[in-house]
């Protein structure tokens, strides 16, 4: 296994597999997000119920949040392998070309050339995103544990948060348009008759992901989705004080 990791071909395959894990998670994440499009609901927002379900999934067989933490550990592991592999490959690739002689661009795509840049920016975005919605450490807008719908609503009332999230989606789209097709090539899962379909398939998946992710913040910002029920908040508060 160590030998596999040491070779450039093997290392790139590790990067491809971990990339595939991250893409798989993105698809689930997007589907989960779409729960917020059901609005604040009569008594509980559907996305709040969904967030609760993610935490209690598997109970009483498994302790609370087990599945959630398994997913988090797998994702973190995949991300570390993905970044370590790429960092080492980039170093090798730079050494393989003499300094000051970048190869002329003949036909390579902008996405493929920007992979490193989009990757670094995405890492920064992921850290920001976790601080905002997982650890709830950014207090520009009111955030509260468990009140997912309300948190989302207030964040996406600000135009600059909307801009950050939409910009991140452009980066995701660019990174994956090359990445998804590329991983099939790297793992040798392509074949000549399938290659064109894989390229179009990658583009189609990217379009679905960007629209799926992008719709939620836009719906909040344009007030298509109703504000969270302050009533529900008030009852919780009154419960605390009595």
């Amino acid at each position: 296994m160590l030998e596999y990791w040491r070779s450039t071909v093997g290392k790139k395959q590790f990067v491809a597999v971990t990339g595939a894990i991250l893409v798989g998670y993105l698809i689930l994440h997007m589907l989960g997000n779409l729960n917020s499009a059901f609005g604040p609901g009569a008594d509980e927002a559907r996305v709040d119920w969904y967030a609760h379900w993610l935490r209690t999934f598997g109970e009483p067989l498994l302790p609370r949040e087990t599945i959630l933490w398994v997913v988090r550990v797998v994702l973190l592991g995949a991300l570390i392998v993905h970044i370590t592999g790429i960092a080492q490959l980039v170093k090798r690739n730079r050494e393989a070309r003499p300094a000051n002689f970048p190869a002329k661009r003949i036909g390579r795509s902008v996405e493929s050339m920007a992979m490193l840049g989009t990757g670094i920016l995405l890492l920064a975005f992921i850290i920001f995103h976790i601080l905002q919605f997982t650890t709830l450490s950014i207090h520009v807008t009111p955030v509260e544990e468990g009140a997912v719908y309300a948190n989302l609503y207030w964040v996406f009332q600000k135009w600059y948060f909307l801009a950050i999230y939409l910009a991140a989606l452009v980066l995701v789209g660019m990174h994956l348009r090359h990445g998804i097709w590329s991983l099939f090539q790297t793992l040798g899962l392509d074949n000549p008759s399938r290659n064109q379909k894989l390229r179009h398939g990658a583009t189609a998946l990217v379009v679905i992901l960007v629209i799926g992710f992008g719709s939620v913040p836009v719906l909040f910002f344009t007030d298509v989705l109703d504000p969270p029920r302050e009533v529900a908040l008030a009852t919780i508060l009154s419960g605390v004080f009595t």
Partner: peptide
Amino acid sequence: VEQMDAEGFGGCTNYGECSR
């Protein structure tokens, strides 16, 4: 593949310039 690495060739990032 081992010899490619030993010689110091870089790795593939699927740019496709080689084929062009």
